[in-house]
Design a protein around this nucleic acid. Structure first.
Lengths: 201, 201
DNA sequence: GTCTATACTCTGATAGAC
DNA sequence: GTCTATCAGAGTATAGAC
């Protein structure tokens, strides 16, 4: 999809995608301008359009790269593992994604907020199938009495909501906490407690 | 702030704000256009600008009206009430806000996602003070052993995250659940269970 | 109070020199 | 591959008739 033959092409392509992630995640698709993206990437606007045919193409490239990363932690949930350990590990990995890739989280949030116009197919396809699959795993564990019986879909939603909140609403979290806090460290402890109590059979 | 003398002015002003809420909440500030807003409101673009001096002014009017509504449920948390009952009632009211006012929730989410450029003062002011106040109440209840000891800030964040998720990520929730679900009803049951277990001393 | 017409700016994209 | 110059369209806002 993206041209990537020589070293310099590789470097510029990835500089553009990185800059675009900055700008799209902060302003949304229509709020972002090619001027901004080009400036952050250190290129001229026509030069940017030499690497990607359109603004739309840059955005699409970002979104498709994002989806895999985003689903990996849930994919890693092992049906053969210990239920509580697996779920807690999933929560921790998801929180780490929020801490280490907040721009990706906000890009995704922007897209969903706007009705997921460019990503709906993937949500109804890959995402839904993966969730259905893991919901079956969770139900199995509940049937065996190894974790508390809960609505498995909403259990997954609650993990998404609680972890993504720390990336997407970062400025609000920090403003309310004030100085001298490490939101992600505190969130880690809090979520350990929350899911510990929630899952206990 | 808004002109509102005659009946017709009142009616047009509120039609504009309602239309603007539709459009801003779906596309963000820069993604929204006056053309769209005017069309939804059933007015011409110049006529819209007769009621509000600029696009910015419409947005500001919406945001300032929003903040009060948004903080009301937390304000209503009564220090003299029963701790678990008060907190569960807060969760329920917040979820009802998500169900009944999803556009407002998304408008707010858009603003925070973009770094809260037009609302930061209110977040650092009114919002932070209210939260600090209620955090003290929660701590008091924890000290008395009436609810479990938890980080009170993150307890509030978790209520925000879990309830707003159902408004802001509505399309994802519905796509994953598929047909035949009532997301908000299910969420109500789930959150009852979650906070019931979390708060038990 | 509301409309048509329009001024002016910003933005996505292209042409063409180097 | 990269740049300057520029086009075409969209978008905010205003002028002025009714």
């Amino acid at each position: 999809m993206t041209k990537a033959r020589t070293r310099i092409q590789e470097k510029n392509s990835s500089a553009i995608l990185d800059a675009a992630l900055d700008v799209f995640s902060l302003h949304g698709f229509r709020g972002a301008t090619l001027d901004q993206i080009a400036e952050v990437a250190g290129l001229s606007k026509p030069n940017l359009l030499y690497y990607f045919p359109s603004k739309e193409a840059v955005h699409t490239a970002l979104l498709s790269r994002l989806l895999d990363t985003w689903l990996d932690p849930l994919r890693a949930l092992d049906p053969a593992g210990d239920p509580a350990v697996e779920i807690m590990a999933y929560v921790r990995r998801k929180l780490e994604l929020s801490r280490d890739f907040p721009r990706e989280s906000r890009l995704f949030a922007n897209e969903i907020l706007q009705g997921a116009p460019r990503i709906m197919a993937a949500i109804e396809g890959d995402l839904k199938h993966l969730v259905d699959d893991k919901v079956a795993v969770l139900r199995g564990w509940m049937d065996q009495g190894r974790i508390a019986r809960l609505d498995p879909y909403h259990l997954i939603f609650s993990i998404w909501a609680l972890t993504q909140h720390y990336a997407d609403f970062d400025v609000q979290v920090r403003a309310v906490l004030g100085e001298g806090h490490d939101p992600f460290a505190e969130a880690g402890d809090f979520l350990d407690t929350l899911f510990g109590r929630l899952l206990k059979p």
